[in-house]
Design a protein around this nucleic acid. Sequence first.
DNA 1: ATCGATTGGGTAATCGATTACCCGGTTTTC
DNA 2: GAAAACCGGGTAATCGATTACCCAATCGAT
Lengths: 338, 338
Amino acid sequence: MGVTIHDVARAAGVSVASASRALSGRRRVTPEIAERVARAVAELGYQPNAVAKALRDQTTGTIGMVVPGIGNPFFTTIVEAVERELQNSGTDLLLCASQYSPQVEARRLETLLARRVDGLIISPCDIEASVPAVLDAARRVPLVQVDRYIEGGGADWVGVDDEAGVTLAAEHVIAGGARSVSFAGSRPVSSSARLRLSGFERAAARAGVEVLPPLLGEFTLEWGVEAGRRLLDAGRLPDAVVCANDEIAVGLVRSLRLGGVRVPEDVAVVGFDDVGHATMCDPPLSTVRQPVEEMAAEAVRLLGQVKAGDPRPAQRIAIAPRLVVRQTSRPVTASVAE
Amino acid sequence: MGVTIHDVARAAGVSVASASRALSGRRRVTPEIAERVARAVAELGYQPNAVAKALRDQTTGTIGMVVPGIGNPFFTTIVEAVERELQNSGTDLLLCASQYSPQVEARRLETLLARRVDGLIISPCDIEASVPAVLDAARRVPLVQVDRYIEGGGADWVGVDDEAGVTLAAEHVIAGGARSVSFAGSRPVSSSARLRLSGFERAAARAGVEVLPPLLGEFTLEWGVEAGRRLLDAGRLPDAVVCANDEIAVGLVRSLRLGGVRVPEDVAVVGFDDVGHATMCDPPLSTVRQPVEEMAAEAVRLLGQVKAGDPRPAQRIAIAPRLVVRQTSRPVTASVAE
DNA sequence: ATCGATTGGGTAATCGATTACCCGGTTTTC
DNA sequence: GAAAACCGGGTAATCGATTACCCAATCGAT
């Protein structure tokens, strides 16, 4: 370890300035020098030190991304989309998981900022507890939120229109004949959890159907399984259940079927996200599709525009979701089928 | 942005040396100075620049991790385990995905090295094509491979004993009465893919049962579904299928059931990994458990020991897997049941 | 009282790459 | 033919934190 540009310059018999210029091409050098430098680089196996470059340039060519957990297929999908989006822009991604803990999240942000990332993409794990850390970060560096956001609107956000999504789902099952409906979701610690719940309740109330008490736990398959069991134990089944994500929906369907309930004949189930196993589970899941690629592209674009802590009012870019009807709900006329 | 230790020193009325000492505690300062520096830090909101520190110290407090893809639950599980393992050691993790492409992998390694990570944990995507990039990286920085490895043994490795794992699986289904068996796995571009296939074939041959041609595609649910279809189309079903991972197994079970085949009565299926949905799918999957936490701990420990490019012979640490019998295979006497 | 040891503070070198600035030589322009 | 513009090369400053080295003051021991 430790071939520096000085070594290259010496080996090529030129100054460091010339070596640097030959390498970066930001000023012309004679072909002769370019040649000698190229040879020296190859010979010595020189690899530029990005740390030194970052210090001098005051820019690292790196953006940080913090998501609640990489066990959740929705987040891995969006991470992959962001990576793809960044691919050809030369910047690369520093990925961290907050493990659904605002404390861990704050620490991760801290170290990303210390490493002087040029920007941050974050899905804050808690709508309230994440506020100080996120605002603080946004003051120092361009930051955009994705999917989840903090309350108060202090930072830019790109995501899906959660309320519209669950409304789509609720209206779909109601149009399919559901007279009583329920919601299986997450405890409302995140914006998505809250909006999907409230959007569902509003849509159901508007349609005038009976609303059974919601089942609130976590965004996991395990909780879906558990929610399904509780539904069975409660004795009375709703005609349809709208779920806050696909994992919950898949778990719920599993429990219901194990309990002898037919899906969608007895109970219709609709998920949210349309990532991971939604197409491949049994039966294929009706769900609300998040336009993940679009969100990632938008987030990256927005990140390029925002300057750290500028006074411009925070933007919220909500992308319209789309209902995908598969086989856990009865198809009705005007919806996209696959 | 831009409060430096010089600003702190000025505000506190001391030299940068004293400020640095007060902050790091690596030399004593008077309580008076410590106090003044602490106040200045709080007032100015000073945050040390990790880039500058890294340049001066020649160490970044960061290790890089490269896995083929974060869509695969096995890799996300091991990433999480490594993160946990690193948590209290103060070093943090730079995660990259090679997207199963040796070219992308080489680029990622390149940038991680340029950023001067203190070590690398990698699961090389291709047993042959990954060789030059991995060896090159190992020459510059401590490196340990996890799960997958490159041929030729030029770098340390921690993983599960793949052959022992599939042997466990094969012997289990044979003990359960299978007279004909098949294997559903990935094309042999990675060490795990190769070893699991060859281990299976050896175990089956040893037991003297009939071996149907293997189904080789990718480590995905989609491929599992496809493999199941091909099995159905082939007309002749084996008594048991051993799969190279859980995703394939789950997809295979789904296809078989859709085709009216009962699992495990008509065909027994065993997976590999025991991560993700293995416990929660229907029916719960019999599989070979990888000791992920142990592997992560071992990898981190080993990384602490190896020096870059030292001539010490490469170690291979294979951890014994464990068979977990659930409901896609017939239970036999002496195996762990859950 | 004096000398060596110890303590704590400050100055400036260091890490590696980039680039502002300077300088001598060549070309262009009127 | 002189002035202006241009070109390509080198020296040294710069980014921010750490620390080797130096120095003055204090302490303890004889």
